[in-house]
Design a protein around this nucleic acid. Structure first.
Lengths: 220, 220
DNA sequence: GATAACTTGCTGTACGTCAAGCAAATTCAT
DNA sequence: ATGAATTTGCTTGACGTACAGCAAGTTATC
């Protein structure tokens, strides 16, 4: 299992690429789960199947590793979300359809990536050390919601402040996943349950869209 | 409870009561700001104007101090909120008025107590070590929203799931304050600005209430 | 055999907790 | 009332632990 055979590049041999992503994956899971302060580079290494010094070897310091995790996650978020939004926009349909598609894409994204939600929550409580200084801010989320917000703005409702509406949409989408373990459990809903995303999508559409359209029709 | 006069309660003399609350206050501010792991009992003592051993003397351990902070904050929250809700209910008025009052009371409460919001957010990310095992869960918030939810339930809308509606109301109220420093700044709104609470109250009323009432009237 | 990919030992630092100490306050004997 | 005895409030020193970062070492790969 040494010199000659080269097909054994699975795990025994060295593989900087694989090590890097293994470390990033482990760090993402641990940072999301226990926060920056709560996780040690020691356990990141352990979870990644390398020794405790390897994260430092590849990323320099714990903070740089953290930033790398955030950056990767933000980029992934932005890619997935803007892709979904573009697809929705390409489908055509009126503002109502676009809103539905946009909100649906965001809900599905957040539902599929609880680690991203937790990462952002930690970062938010920590004062946005990284995301706050990042030009993309909440990366995909913010961008996506801006698109949605712009579309809603086209309805030109005098009575509804677009900023407040944007915030409300954010809250409606974000909140169930951010508080899955605490508030949601108290209410008796599990955002990870199979039908939740669909149901909540319908619910938001009923709650917000119908109200808005009614307002628009009534000329407010 | 002493015999003679006791006007010299300035600071020079001993005062266990004052020390306890000073420590609780400092701990609340620091835990809210930097989380449990991020604050040391050393700096709690420093902020409270006592030495680094005093918090331990009064509360036994860091964790017990943390629980004491949470308990005090939860009780205060519950007291303020249920008081406001009772007052709103006593005023009478239809379900619409009660909803408005209830949402308004919650918004004002959250706006006035950002430390409470952050405390709950930290606790939520930490897995609800204390609040999760507390029967009152999110203490006042949950209770208050249950009242609101019950009232909305009286509208008996076939199409609107009361659980989802409760979650939506929670998100609409909670989100702006939980993400004041991050998302809100990106959107260009400051929940601490003077007019925000009023504006958001109106906004929620427009967004949710009108839609709901329209639905109810249309017989859905 | 040189360089990159790791690992392991070490150092300094920060932390929570505990034990010992000390002084203000209170109680009690006289 | 007054001084001794005891309790209570609070501080300081010490110990063990955990951690991040670095440096020196050890293999694998080209």
């Amino acid at each position: 299992m040494t010199t000659g055979a080269k097909r054994a590049h699975t795990k025994r041999t060295r593989n900087p690429q694989a090590s890097r992503t293994a470390i990033l994956d482990a760090a993402e899971a641990l940072f999301a789960g226990k926060g920056y302060r709560g996780t040690s580079v020691r356990e990141i290494g352990e979870a990644a199947g390398v020794s405790r010094g390897t994260p430092g070897y590849f990323f320099g310091s714990k903070e740089r590793l953290y930033r790398a995790v955030l950056e990767r996650a933000s980029n992934a978020a932005r890619a997935v979300l803007s892709g979904a939004l573009e697809a929705a926009a390409a489908k055509g349909g009126g503002p109502e359809a676009l809103l539905r598609e946009g909100v649906g894409a965001i809900l599905e994204f957040l539902s599929a990536r609880p680690r991203y939600v937790r990462l952002v929550e930690w970062e938010s409580l920590g004062g946005g050390r990284f995301l706050g200084s990042s030009p993309a801010h909440l990366a995909g989320m913010s961008e996506a919601l801006s698109v949605v917000g712009a579309e809603v703005g086209r309805l030109s409702l005098r009575r509804v402040d677009p900023q407040h509406l944007l915030v409300s949409l954010m809250g409606l989408c974000w909140f169930p996943f951010a508080h899955a373990d605490t508030l949601m459990a108290g209410v008796g809903l599990d955002p990870r349950a199979p039908g939740f995303v669909e149901a909540h999508k319908e619910h938001i559409a009923d709650l917000v869209l119908r109200g808005l359209l009614a307002l628009a029709e009534s000329g407010a």
